[in-house]
Simulated assay, not measured.
Amino acid sequence: MTQSTPRVAIVTGGSGGIGRAVAERLAADGMTVLVHYAGNPARAEETVQAIVAAGGTATAARADVADEHEVAALFDEAEQRYGGVDVVVHTAGIMLLSPLAELDLDDLDRMHRTNIRGTFVVDREAARRVRRGGAIINFSTSVTRIALPTYAAYAASKGAVDAMTLILARELRGRDITVNAVAPGPTATPLFLEGKEQSVVDHMASMAPLERLGTPDDIAEAVSFLAGPARWINGQVVHANGGII
């Protein structure tokens, strides 16, 4: 791929945690980044300022990922501001945990809307707009294989992400666009650590042969690979979990 202008990336959920690490890494790789957020403009602006301070180019934009009109406007902004879209990384999602027998169906519906419908909406727009040589990267979870108790509804929503990832890769035949998903294992983000006893954190850290939790930068490393040099990896779910399973 030879382009005279920087490649342009949209990172959903780019205001914190893994999304912020991804946005900063892609900017460090030389991409111009549109940092998407849903409800926290201050944190999104912190991500933008960190990228700019490091010499990169970024702006923030809000959208409800499950609203097709707002997502279309997000892509419009990237095209109008930067000339097009080359990479879409969809990290935005929610995780609500409960044993299946005690599941609040309202929580199931919330995760369905954000994690499944949201991925469909973002992927649909990406499939229509990403330029040749581009990459679409969804976010799954290693819990689809690890099968931890209380994660049934969340893992089910991410199982849907796996399915649409593999199928979209095949539907984009001839477009020179890769479609993959990254499936993190336990990762030391504030969201993950919140409310967990240290014994639980220690147990999850011990699950990997590398004997530690992942970091947001570990996950961003995998995204950077898929977004850039990994042109022959396509239609895959890449488990970035330190070898848990």
Rank of each mutant, 00 (worst) to 15 (best):
E125R: 14
D29G: 05
Q236P: 01
G118E: 00
T12N: 06
G83F: 03
E77V: 13
A53I: 09
A28V: 10
N40Q: 08
A53P: 03
V161I: 11
T119Y: 05
R25A: 09
N180T: 05
D109L: 11
A126L: 07
E77G: 13
V65A: 06
E68H: 14
L100Q: 11
N241Q: 12
R7E: 07
G39E: 09
A220E: 00
V201P: 01
G134Q: 01
A230I: 06
G118V: 04
W232V: 10
V85H: 03
A208L: 07
V179M: 03
A181S: 15
T187E: 02
S98A: 14
E68L: 10
I177Y: 02
D106G: 14
I51G: 01
R25Y: 02
A54C: 06
G159I: 05
A181H: 04
A147I: 13
G118Y: 00
A78C: 08
A44R: 03
A147P: 03
G39H: 15
H90K: 05
P190V: 09
G195N: 11
I233L: 10
T189E: 04
K158R: 12
R175T: 07
H203F: 13
G30C: 09
M1V: 08
V182D: 00
R113I: 02
S15G: 14
L191Y: 12
V71A: 02
L100W: 14
P229Y: 04
A38C: 11
I18F: 04
A240H: 05
V71D: 00
Y82I: 02
Q198N: 12
T59Q: 14
K158N: 05
G242L: 09
P149V: 09
V65N: 04
F139L: 10
G39W: 09
D162W: 08
R110S: 11
A163H: 09
Y82F: 15
V182L: 05
F75I: 06
A63P: 03
T59V: 15
A126M: 05
A153P: 05
I146Q: 12
A240L: 07
T2G: 10
P99Q: 09
V237G: 00
A208D: 05
A78Q: 07
D176E: 15
T2V: 15
V52P: 02
V179R: 03
A50P: 07
E68C: 03
P184E: 01
T2E: 14
N234F: 00
F225V: 06
P41Q: 09
L226H: 02
V85T: 06
I244E: 04
T150R: 12
M111C: 07
K196N: 12
M207P: 00
D202R: 11
N115H: 08
P229V: 10
P6G: 11
E24I: 10
Y37T: 09
R20H: 08
A152C: 11
G19W: 00
E77S: 13
V200L: 10
R124K: 15
K158V: 04
T59A: 14
A220G: 04
V52E: 14
D104T: 11
E197S: 14
Q49C: 08
I219E: 03
A127K: 01
A160S: 11
N40F: 05
G174V: 07
